[in-house]
Each structure stands twice: as C-alpha cells, then as structure tokens.
Amino acid sequence: MIKNILLVALGGGLGSVLRFLMNLFIAKNLPTRLYLATFLVNTIGCFFIGYSIGYFQKYTTDNEFLKLAIITGFCGGFTTFSTFGLENYTLIQSGNISTSLLYTSLSIIIGILFVTLGIYLSK
C-alpha cells in the first residue's frame, strides 16, 4: 500500500510540475491568451490518458504500479479533466449516454456555482 501511495505521489508531483511549467511558458509567451494554458493542459491530458489506457489494453500490461504512476498519479496531477473525459468515454461506450450528459452538465454547472459560493463565503 505504501508503494502504491508513493507511486501516485511521484506521478502526481511530476504532472503538477509539468502543468505549472506549461502555465508559466504560455503566460510568458502568449500573455493575451488567458485560458489557453488550461485548454492545452486539459486537451493534452485527455490524449495522454486515452493513449495510456489504449497502450495498456493493447499490450495487456498488468503492471499496476505503472498504471498507478501514470494514470492515477501523472494524469491526475496534470489535470483531473482527463479522468473526467475517460469517465464520460466509459459511460458512452457502455450505452449510458444520458448519464454522461447529466454528469457533464451537472459537473460544469455545479462546479461554477460552487466556485461562486466559495468566493462569496470567503468574503
């Protein structure tokens, strides 16, 4: 269990640092593109989690340690949006399109409302 936690922490730390560096790079080189860093991180994260899942399925890799470090750790630290994308993909593939639409809609609406609530309550 400790080894799993350390692998997730290592992967998550690397993902978080890479996200931070991408944000700095984009802010420095494209200062007028406010949301570009988040958009790129989310898009790259979705591609990377999809590629990783596909790779593990293709090569039937049972290396749970590698999956924890890359999928849970790195992708989770880089962006949780990639997990959100994977969950919706899984819902759609299993025929739960209405659940996917509800999950997506509620995540966006409630997320924005809770950001607003948090800002309001902190004042």
Rank of each mutant, 00 (worst) to 15 (best):
L102P: 03
T43F: 15
I53V: 15
L36F: 15
T104E: 06
S16V: 00
V8P: 05
S94T: 15
K28Q: 11
Y59L: 07
M22E: 03
L18C: 08
A37P: 04
F74K: 00
T43I: 15
R19C: 01
N63I: 01
G45F: 01
Y89Q: 09
L24S: 08
F56G: 04
L6K: 07
I49T: 12
I108D: 11
V17W: 07
Q57A: 14
S107W: 06
K58G: 10
Y120W: 14
T43Y: 10
L18Q: 01
L86A: 15
Y120M: 07
G95L: 07
G50P: 09
L7E: 06
L121A: 10
G85I: 11
I70D: 00
S105R: 04
T90H: 11
L34W: 10
Y103E: 03
L66N: 02
G118R: 13
I5A: 14
I119C: 03
L21K: 11
L7R: 09
G13A: 02
S122R: 08
G15K: 00
N4F: 06
L40W: 02
E87S: 11
T116P: 02
I92P: 01
K123E: 14
S105K: 05
Y59I: 01
A27M: 04
S52H: 05
Y89N: 08
Q93L: 09
N88R: 05
K67V: 08
V17L: 11
G12R: 00
G54F: 07
G77E: 00
G76S: 04
G95Q: 09
C75S: 04
S100E: 06
F48I: 14
L18D: 02
I53E: 13
I112L: 14
G111Q: 13
G12Y: 01
S100G: 09
G73N: 00
K123I: 11
A37K: 03
S98G: 03
F78I: 00
T61H: 02
G15E: 00
T83P: 01
V115M: 10
T99I: 15
L113I: 12
A27E: 12
L113D: 03
L121V: 12
K123Q: 14
N63M: 00
N88F: 07
G13M: 00
I44V: 15
F56R: 05
G73Y: 01
N23S: 12
I53Y: 13
Y35N: 14
S52G: 06
G76Q: 03
L7C: 04
T83M: 10
L86H: 09
K3I: 15
Y120F: 13
A9E: 07
L68E: 11
L68F: 02
N88D: 11
N42L: 05
G11L: 01
L86G: 06
T116Y: 13
L102V: 14
L91E: 06
L14E: 01
S105Q: 02
F114S: 05
I26T: 03
T83Y: 05
T60H: 13
E64R: 12
N23F: 07
V8T: 03
F25S: 14
A27T: 12
I110T: 04
T80H: 05
R19A: 01
E64W: 08
I112Q: 10
F56D: 06
N88Q: 11
Q93D: 08
N4Y: 09
R33I: 02
I44M: 07
I5Y: 14
G15H: 00
S82M: 07
I119G: 04
L113H: 03
V17H: 03
Y51V: 13
